[in-house]
Nucleic acid binder design. Structure first.
Length: 594
RNA sequence: GCUGGGAUAGCUCAGUUGGUAGAGCAGCGGUCUUGUAAACCGCAGGUCGUCAGUUCGAAUCCGACUCUCAGCUCCA
């Protein structure tokens, strides 16, 4: 494959999908310029799933995309040769005199810089390249959607019109991508979760406030018991702190100055003597547990956990199914320790998180992000540069010592400290934080937390702020998508459905149900008068782990016919053998050691 | 919060240039008592997201709001 770089040099290299996509974005811009000459060019990079190009003074609709795509295919067919050349800044500005966004980019470049351009036919774009050598090198291209996007990614700037598209090496690869995209939609928790009656929402209750239906509430209960029991075995002590507090608490913690926009405040500061706010984080509440009396080094490490319901007044456009909500519950915890305990305890928190991920089956799907502050953003963060350097330095040391493969996210830290975020992508490819482990010194200082050390002097403890399985609602959403609703046995809200072939077996069915429930299993009997084939199909749609078919034969022989959701047909066995089998499966699923 | 779609029965969706709402599935009642992908008959179910407007007349046209989807921004 031939490419051209911004020195005008042509070179040979293996097929590079990112270069193809970047070239496709130029062809998109060329097509837009031909069809809508008044449109202004912003930027058009390649991304993970394809490419986009941002335009101003363009107002097209979804229906117009096909037309644009047809024009792109025409340009590809014309097989224009792509050339590159450089200009001094002054001439570059002159060349782009009708492109305000390009001029802004050029103006931001140093004066000494030679500015490179790529040209294909009548179309010229400011670009560092490289590109494919001919437009015909684009083998499969498709425009996908059209949305708004802020210029330079800042909401203070104008919103431009962004066109998303994708390109592949051949038509088959494009086709496969589109099919996968459609399949992903079927796993979408926001659709599947409603279909499987896990949750719903309601106009009267409001945005970002999902209602957990019996199936969803059951899964959350199972998860919560699992988390609390596991944490207890790891030396965590459960606390229960209030859902709200006076504004005084938040003023001390810094939330009032740095987080009030995102809080639900009860009352009016101007009129009321006392104003309350629902808690957006548990830290300042749980710190009061530590502060309940003086602490000695003998009390450390002190591990406090809480199944903690939080309230955040997210902007209206942010809410999404169970992934982004206004009220949610997290497996939160705060760990107070001495400096020389810090690394070991941090490791313990990470180990616990990884154990949770492995048990849930999500371990292979996560990535790690070291979230630092942005020194430029004075509004967002409390503390001094020295404090941040220290906290980040400590965390970086630990992360590197653990040999963790992580990316750095600048400006992603909490307002009070750096974080190790464990990230996961949903079915649409959008990444969110599932679990977070943070080192917090600023709030410890604000609340005056200390301990008496061996030498009798007062010292400030290090505090690790962490979640073990993260936000329950978000985790549930990811689990729905991971398993496409077919939950592992230990998590399934209904584990077994009993299908009597006729009403003659109803009594026997209820007998089996009672015995299974007595063993702690979650069972449902299908007492409808449908035919057995229909009942099986229904049970399959519910994605339950097991079904039991009971007819005259089973009743006669005092057996059951069991079928797992993967199996083609059922096996006739004794109930006790089935119970043994179920327990084995569950032990396998949650019995792993930390 | 911003840009652009959308909201009709529990669900999936029809509904023509404005004339007063329909199907399939689910539900309920009955018949059938069934051995592996949808038995048969019947019934019921809607303030067409909400509110205000234009009109003799609005699911349909205009406006505001609510909710929802995709993306941006923000974030667990």
């Amino acid at each position: 494959m031939k490419y051209i770089n911004n020195n005008g040099e042509v070179y040979e290299k293996d097929y590079d999908i990112q270069i193809e996509r970047h070239t496709a974005s130029h062809i998109l811009a060329q097509a837009i310029k031909r069809l809508y000459p008044n449109a202004k060019l912003a930027i058009g990079p390649a991304i993970d799933t394809g490419f986009y190009y941002d335009f101003d003074d363009l107002n097209i609709k979804q229906e117009d995309l096909q037309n644009v795509e047809d024009e792109m295919k025409k340009i590809i067919k014309e097989n224009l040769k792509i050339e590159s050349y450089s200009l001094p800044k002054k001439e570059a500005l002159e060349l782009m005199k009708n492109e305000p966004y390009k001029r802004e980019i050029i103006n931001d470049l140093p004066d000494t810089e030679k500015i490179s351009f790529f040209k294909q036919g009548e179309y010229i774009d400011l670009c560092v390249g490289p590109h494919m050598l001919y437009t015909k090198s684009i083998k499969a291209v498709k425009l996908l959607s059209i949305t708004g996007a802020y210029w330079k990614g800042s909401q203070n700037n104008k919103m431009l019109q962004r066109i998303y598209g994708t390109a592949f090496e051949n038509k088959e690869a494009l086709e496969e991508f589109l099919i996968k995209k459609e399949e992903a939609k079927l796993r979408d928790h926001n659709k599947l979760g409603r279909e499987l009656e896990i949750f719903t929402t309601n106009d009267l209750i409001g945005q970002g406030l999902p209602i957990m239906l019996p199936n969803g509430a059951k899964i959350l209960q199972i998860l919560q018991r699992f988390v609390e029991d596991t944490e207890a075995r790891q030396g965590w002590q459960l606390t229960k702190t209030p859902f709200m507090a006076k504004s005084d608490l938040y003023k001390l913690s810094g939330h009032w100055d740095h987080y009030k926009e995102d809080m639900f405040v009860l009352g009016d500061e101007k009129k009321d003597e006392e104003v309350f706010a629902l808690r957006p984080m548990t830290c300042p509440f749980q710190y009061q547990v530590y502060l309940n009396r003086g602490r000695s080094y003998r009390d450390l490490p002190m591990r406090l956990n809480e199944t903690s319901t939080l309230f955040r007044n997210e902007s209206s456009g942010e809410m999404h199914g169970l992934i982004r909500v206004r009220q949610f519950t997290i497996s939160e915890g705060h760990l107070m320790c001495t400096p020389d305990q810090l690394e070991e305890e941090f490791k313990g928190c990470l180990k616990l998180a990884i154990y949770m991920l492995k048990t849930l089956g999500l371990y292979e799907d996560v990535s790690y992000r070291f979230s630092k502050w942005d020194p430029e953003d004075k509004q967002k963060y409390i503390g001094t540069k020295e404090q941040w350097d220290e906290a980040q330095g400590v965390m970086e040391g630990i992360l590197n010592h653990l040999g963790l493969d992580y990316k750095v996210g600048v400006g992603e830290a909490a307002f009070y400290g750096p974080k190790l975020d464990i990230q996961i992508k949903n079915v649409h490819g959008k990444e969110d934080t599932l679990i977070t482990i943070q080192i917090d010194q600023m709030l410890a200082e604000k609340f005056g937390m200390e301990y008496i050390d061996k030498d009798g002097t007062k010292k400030r403890p290090y505090i690790i702020h962490r979640t073990s399985l993260g936000c329950y609602e978000r985790t549930l959403a990811l689990l729905i998508e991971k398993y496409a609703g077919a939950f592992p046995l230990w998590l399934a809200p209904i584990q077994i459905k009993i299908l009597p072939i006729s009403d003659n077996e109803l009594l026997y069915a209820n007998e089996i149900k009672a015995k299974l429930e007595n063993e702690g299993f979650r069972v449902k009997v299908d007492s409808s008068d449908e035919k057995i084939g229909y009942k099986i199909r229904e049970a399959q749609l519910e994605k339950l782990p097991f079904m039991i078919v009971l007819g005259a034969k089973e009743k006669e022989e005092n057996t059951i016919s069991v079928r797992s959701r993967q199996a083609e047909k059922q096996d006739q066995i004794k109930l006790n053998d089935f119970i043994l089998n179920l327990n084995n499966i569950i032990n396998e699923q949650i019995g792993k050691d930390i």
